[in-house]
Amino acid sequence: MTTAPILTATGLKKEFRGFKAVNGVDLSIREGSIHALIGPNGAGKTTVFNLLTQFLKPTAGRVVYRGRDITALPPADVARLGLVRSFQISAVFPKLTALANVRVALQRKASLTTQFWRSSRVLSGLDDRARSLLADVGLESHAGSEAADLSYGRKRALEIATTLALEPDLLLLDEPMAGMAHEDIGRVSELIRTVAVGRTVLMVEHNLSVVADLCDRVTVLARGEVLAEGSYDAVSRDPRVREAYMGSEDA
């Protein structure tokens, strides 16, 4: 319990034309943990993700990753440091095959990105690694399918495989199970547990039984502010949280 935080945010604020979507959020993510960020719709969870990964610049506040202030970095450079995010709306390259989707991530790791004079056939050297990543998420038989043709659950799995190709230290998953069929939820939940070994995961998730089952620590966000933080049990006993968020689920 004494491990240093891998990511800390202090006093994060984001205003959209005067509207305080995120209003002074402090966050500390322990290395190696699975940390959940929960809260009602519109609480500012996705905005916090955007601020942590620098897809949005905060109005105020700082983000420190492994002791380094990343608040001024462009989002691509944040990803290069090993802090990789997924998106709430599934983010695949729709017209590429599943295999080619994963290869896009592997390409950068292999520094096969700027060679404009070489044949793209050199990329087939990445196929074995891409196939094994697809196998890790149960997509080995869909390697040749266009991403656009995959079911919703498979798209999310493909996204995770692509993210893992970068071997990130910290994964930020925005509602990885939203809109998934029941049997897929169990699978992806297991998948996250597996990939979290040796990594840190911060995830936004609405399905509270998944959160209870998976996460070491929970931060509750409401109206852009942190309402409570702690273990799932402690947080779910907090009367303010029950009032703001869990009242109906807890009956």
């Binding site: 990964t53 691509a76 450079d77 991530a105």
Partner: peptide
């Protein structure tokens, strides 16, 4: 956005 999140400038 996805390309950016994979670290492409």
């Amino acid at each position: 956005p996805r390309a950016i999140s994979l670290g492409y400038r």
